[in-house]
Amino acid sequence: MSRLELISPEGLRIDGRRPNELRKLTAKVNVLSQADGSAYLEQGNTKVLAAVYGPGEPRQRSKVVHDRSFISVEFNIAPFSAGERRKRTKGDKRSLELAYTIKETFEAVVITTQFPRSQINIYLQVLQADGGTLPACINASTLALVNAGIPMLDYVCACSAGSIEKTPILDINYVEESSDSPDVTVAYLPKVGKVALLQMEARLHIDVFEKVVALGTDGCIEMRSKLDTVIRQGMQQLVNQLEQ
């Protein structure tokens, strides 16, 4: 099997990006009529739909917390989302772990103490997976939560980063992910300046690791301005209609 050249001699990656370039991001809010907040997000070829319901009456009595709201995340990956059709779409360990990770991330950022004894539901549907599923889901959830009018400390912006032959790269696509390149996912609160989530797989030397994490947080800061524009556009549209 010939080794795919992940970085060309000119320094371009297989999809033509430079190592520190994010993929094209397009997103829209208010896409679902029934949900309190909803967002559709495309990061490169990865496409995710997020819906938020809440805060509302808790449906799972056993999980009710007396002094704050609890967040429940359901993560679904469509069978047609990858190259090969998936047989098991729900309940597999990876999906459960992703849902749990996202829940933990947002429980620390959403100001849940304002809604005791209630439940916030986040539903995620991955329509196309081309690398960076977790960051895309986190970004989509952020948009949907802000769209639903749920108070948060800051935008949770997420980005994946890795390293190919000691060069840190930003926003990993599927091919780079499938190779043995390490995969670091960072979720950052850009205005607050704190890391909400840090996840890493495969081996990375400590010196390179620092650079990769720094690149990841830079990517997150850039992501925030893009997500912010999407929210403002959504709001401006409604405001224009209201006040014309």
Partner: peptide, 8 residues
């Protein structure tokens, strides 16, 4: 003014 979460 329109503000968003995290904005001062």
């Amino acid at each position: 003014h329109i503000v968003t979460p995290g904005e001062s």
